[in-house]
Simulated scan of single mutants.
Amino acid sequence: MRFRSRSRSISKKPRTALTRGATTVASAVLLSGAFGVGTAAAYDVESGSLAFSGDAGEYISGGQSYAYDEGLTTQGYVTNGVPTGVGVFVDAGDGSSWALHLETAGGDVQPLAPGTYSGAAANPAPGRPRIELRGNGRDCLAEGAFAVQDVDITARGYVKKLDATFEQHCPGATESVRGEVHLSNPEPPAETALGLDVAPDAVAGRVDGHALVHGTVTCTEPVALDTYGTVSQTLDGVTTRGTYRTRVDCVPGAPVPWAASAAPTSGVPFQRGDATVIASSTGKDPFYGHTITAGYSGPLQLTKK
C-alpha cells in the first residue's frame, strides 16, 4: 500500500506517491481547505468506488455521470486524536481529478460516525458539517447533506472502511449532484520503530577541545533521522557542555553508524575523563507522516587523541 502526502490548502499542489522502497510522481490534484485540524497521509485504496451524477445544468458535474473504481486514494482528518472526517480523491486514467470531503461539524470534535449530516457546506459556519465535491477545474461554495452507513478511521487518520451517500448543490442553484462512495482497506501498517545508541567511548580533541561521539540508530522502515544531543563534563568544579547534530539515513536490517562533534559552548575544552550524554533521534514516519523519536542517556569516557 502506498501513501500520498496531501495538503488541505485551496491551491493546486503537486503530490507525490511513496511506496516503501520506491518513489513515483503523480499528477496534480485540486484540494480544498477546512477548519483547522490535523491531516493524515492519503493512502491508495485497495478496494473502492466513487460514483456521482448531476441534474441537467448542474455546474460541478456538468450534468454528467461519473464512476471510478481505480485511481482512488483516501485520507482521514483528525482533530485532537479524533477522526472527524475523510477525503476521497480520484486521479483517473483519462486525466480527470476529483476530490470529495465529508466532515463533522467544526468545534465539537465529534468522530465521523454512521448517521445523517444535514446542513453541510463547503465552507461551513461553526457547528455545521462539511461537504465538498470538486474537480476537473470546477468548484463552488456548495451546500448539501451526506449520510454515513459505515465508517472506520483510526486515530492516525487511516481509513479502513467508508460507505456513504451525498448530495450537494451550488449556491442559489436548484440542480444537484448526487453520489456514493465505498472504500475498504486492509489493517493499517505498524508505525515505524526507532532505536538509538551512543557508544560509551568518545574522544576529546587535543586541538579544538571538541567531544567526538559516535553510535548507531536502528529502524523498522527506511527513514531520514536528525540525531542530536548534549555532552556534559564536570572537572574540578568546572562544567563543560557542548551540543552536536547530524543527519543519518537509517535503513532496516542492521544498526547504522553515525558520528558527530560536540563543540564546547563555554570555551572550556573537553578533557580526558568521565562525561555524560543526553541524545535523541527524530524523523517522520514514512507511512503515517507523524514525528517519531528515540532517546538515550548514559555515561561517556573521554580519551585524548
Rank of each mutant, 00 (worst) to 15 (best):
K284H: 12
L162I: 09
S9M: 09
K13E: 07
D152L: 14
A275I: 00
A254F: 03
H214Q: 02
L212P: 02
T303V: 00
V25L: 15
G215I: 06
L225H: 07
L302N: 04
A279T: 01
S47D: 03
D249E: 12
E132S: 10
G93Y: 02
R138C: 06
E70C: 00
D201M: 02
R15P: 08
E175W: 05
G107I: 03
T192S: 15
A254T: 11
F287H: 12
T276I: 02
H210Q: 06
T220E: 15
V217E: 00
G76H: 04
T216Q: 07
H182R: 06
S266A: 08
T84R: 03
T227W: 05
R15K: 08
S65A: 12
A279M: 06
C170A: 06
V223D: 13
Q168W: 12
P124G: 01
Q64H: 02
A22C: 11
F146K: 00
T84P: 11
V86W: 11
R2M: 15
R128Q: 08
A99I: 10
C219L: 11
K284A: 15
Q110P: 06
A34R: 14
S280D: 15
L133V: 09
E58H: 08
L112R: 01
R4Q: 13
F35T: 03
D94P: 06
D208W: 01
T234R: 07
G242L: 01
D285H: 09
R2W: 14
T24M: 11
V25W: 07
E70K: 07
L212W: 09
D152C: 13
D55H: 03
F270L: 00
V203G: 00
S297E: 14
P189G: 06
G253I: 01
P186Y: 00
F89Q: 13
T104K: 02
A147T: 14
T192W: 13
V29M: 15
T246R: 01
V238M: 03
F146C: 01
F52R: 10
P129S: 06
R20T: 15
P124S: 02
E143P: 08
S11K: 05
L194G: 00
Q168R: 01
A22M: 14
R156V: 01
G253E: 05
I10C: 08
A147M: 12
P111M: 04
A34V: 03
A260R: 09
Y296S: 02
D163C: 08
A202T: 00
F146I: 02
V238G: 01
V109C: 11
V207T: 13
K305G: 14
T192E: 15
A260N: 07
T74C: 15
R20V: 15
E103F: 06
A40R: 10
F89E: 08
L235H: 04
V223P: 03
A254L: 03
G298C: 05
R4K: 08
V248I: 05
Q64E: 10
R15E: 14
G237R: 13
H101C: 08
S53Q: 09
R130A: 13
K160M: 11
E46D: 11
A145Q: 11
K160Q: 12
G289V: 07
S65G: 08
E143R: 10
E221V: 04
T230A: 05
T104E: 11
A164Y: 00
R6I: 10
S118E: 15
